[in-house]
Design a protein around this nucleic acid. Structure first.
Lengths: 246, 246
DNA sequence: CGCCCCATTGAGACGGCTCAACTTGCGTGG
DNA sequence: CCACGCAAGTTGAGCCGTCTCAATGGGGCG
C-alpha cells in the first residue's frame, strides 16, 4: 500500500507512515521484535483513511480477512441478537487490537463501529499467518493477544455476573484509566469516548442507573464528573468498591 | 509418554492410545489434517491418569505450559477474585479444549477443576508452537479455536448482561444439548455434569433462582427435571425464551 | 429561537436476592 | 439394619437494587 496517499500525506498528527515510526508500536507489536521483522509486518499493513463517528469497519457476517489495530480515536464492538438487541462487547483505544472474532467461521461475528473520528491499521490475517510461520515471535505474539482478549472477557463475565452497579462502573473507569496511563496520558483525568448509552449497554445497566451511579460516586468524592470528562480523585477507594457484591 | 501405563492398559472405555484412534478427533483436531501430521501431534500429547471430581488440573498463577483437551468426564474453569468470590467461566465436555488463558502472561489466569472423574490430554504449548511453524493447518486450527472461545465468551456477556433467569437457563440447556448432540448423544435427554451451585454461579443467579426456574420450565412442559437428569420436550419454545429481556 | 439528543433526577414496579424451613439421597457408624 | 449427619436441592415470604416510565435540564446546530 505504498501508493496509499494517507501514508505520505500526513493529514493530521496521528497518521504514521510506518510501524517503526509509530509511537504505539510498543503496544501492538512484540517488544522483542527486530527492525527488519517490523518492516516485514509494516509492508502488509494497510493504513485507512479516517473513519467517521458512527461508521462501521465491518459487520456481522462480513467475510473475515483482517484484524485491525486502532491508531487514533476509539472503537466499539457489539453483537446484535435475532431480536435486534445490542450487546457492546468491547471498547478499543489506540494501540489495541480487535477483530479476533470470525477466524473460526471465516465470517465476522460482531459489528465494529467508530465512536469518534478514528484511524485504524488493517492487518490482513492470511499474510500474518504466512509471516508467523517465518517469525516465531510474531506467532507467539498473536497467540498472546488472543489469550489476553480471552482473559479480559472472563473478567468481564465476573463483572456482569457478580458486581452491582457501582462495582461495574468503577471497574470500567479503572480499566480506562489504566489504558490511558499506558499511553502516557493522565490516568486521573480522562475524557470518556463513549456515551452513557454505550456504557450502560456494555455493563448491563440502563443509562439511568449509570447516571445515578456517576452522581453517587461524585457525591462521595471519589470522582468528578462533567459530562464525558471524568476526574478520578481516589483510585484506592474506587478500587475497593470494584469487589463483587450484588 | 509411551511409558505411561494409561496408554497401554485401557482401564475403562474412554482411554485411547492415540489421536488417530480417538473418536473425538473430529472435535479437537482439524478435519483436513493428514495422518502423518496427526501422528506428529500425537507424539507430543501426554495422556493423564483419571482426575477425580474436585481435583484441580491447574490453578491461577501456575506456570503456563500446556493446554488441555477433555477426553472424558467434564471440567469447569473459574476465577477467584481478591475477596474469594468465585466466577465459573466455562464448562468443558469431551472433545473440547481449554487453557488458552495465560499464554500472554506465562501464568494461568484461572482455576480448572474436574466436576466428575475425567481424563484429559495435555498438549505442551511450546511444542504446538514449534509444530505450528511446520504445519500451517495446525497454526490456523489453534487461531480458530481461540477465536471460537472469544466468540463464545461474547455470547456469554450478552446472556449475563441482557437475559432474565429463564433466558439464561434456557440458553445453557440448549448449549449443552447442542454439544451433547455433536458427540452423537441424545440432544433431548441429558445428565447435567454440574451442580445447581455451578449453574447459578456461571449464569449470575443464586441456586434458589436456578431451582425455581427449572421448576417453572417443567410446569410449563418445556422440560422434565429429575435432579441432574434433564429431558427437553420442546426445543423450539426453549429457543424462543432465550431472547434478551430482563 | 426552537429543535433534538443526551443526560440527570424522581417515583413506583418488579425480578431476583436473602433468609429460612423442609425434603431427599447418600454415606457412616452404632 | 436403622439412626444419624451432611450436602444438595426445592419452596415460600419478604426485601432491595435496578428497571420502567416520566419530567426536566442543558448543549449543539440549523
Amino acid at each position: 500500500m505504498t501508493t496509499d496517499p494517507y501514508n505520505i500525506a500526513c493529514t493530521h498528527g496521528f497518521i504514521q507512515s510506518s510501524c517503526s515510526d509509530c509511537n504505539l508500536k510498543g503496544l501492538c507489536l512484540p517488544i522483542a521484535m527486530d527492525i527488519k521483522d517490523i518492516d516485514k509486518v509494516d509492508n502488509i499493513i494497510k493504513r485507512s483513511r479516517p473513519i467517521q463517528a458512527g461508521e462501521h469497519i465491518y459487520r456481522t457476517g462480513d467475510g473475515f480477512t483482517s484484524i485491525f489495530a486502532v491508531r487514533s480515536g476509539s472503537i466499539k464492538t457489539y453483537l446484535l441478537d435475532d431480536d435486534g438487541v445490542e450487546q457492546v462487547t468491547g471498547f478499543y483505544l489506540p494501540g489495541e487490537i480487535l477483530g479476533f472474532d470470525g477466524i473460526g467461521t471465516e465470517k465476522h461475528g460482531c459489528n465494529v463501529m467508530a465512536m469518534e473520528t478514528s484511524t485504524v491499521c488493517e492487518i490482513p490475517f492470511e499474510r500474518i499467518e504466512e509471516l508467523s510461520l517465518q517469525i516465531p515471535v510474531l506467532q507467539r505474539h498473536f497467540f498472546q493477544l488472543m489469550s489476553q482478549q480471552i482473559e479480559a472477557d472472563h473478567q468481564m463475565m465476573l463483572t456482569l455476573s457478580k458486581k452491582n452497579a457501582e462495582g461495574r462502573v468503577a471497574t470500567l473507569l479503572l480499566s480506562l484509566s489504566r489504558r490511558f496511563g499506558r499511553r502516557n496520558l493522565s490516568p486521573n483525568s480522562l475524557r470518556l469516548p463513549m456515551s452513557r448509552m454505550d456504557i450502560g449497554n456494555f455493563l448491563g445497566l440502563t443509562i439511568e442507573t449509570v447516571s445515578r451511579t456517576f452522581s453517587r460516586l461524585q457525591k462521595e468524592g471519589l470522582i468528578k464528573v462533567d459530562g464525558r470528562e471524568i476526574h478520578i480523585n481516589d483510585h484506592k477507594q474506587l478500587q475497593s468498591i470494584c469487589h463483587a457484591s450484588k
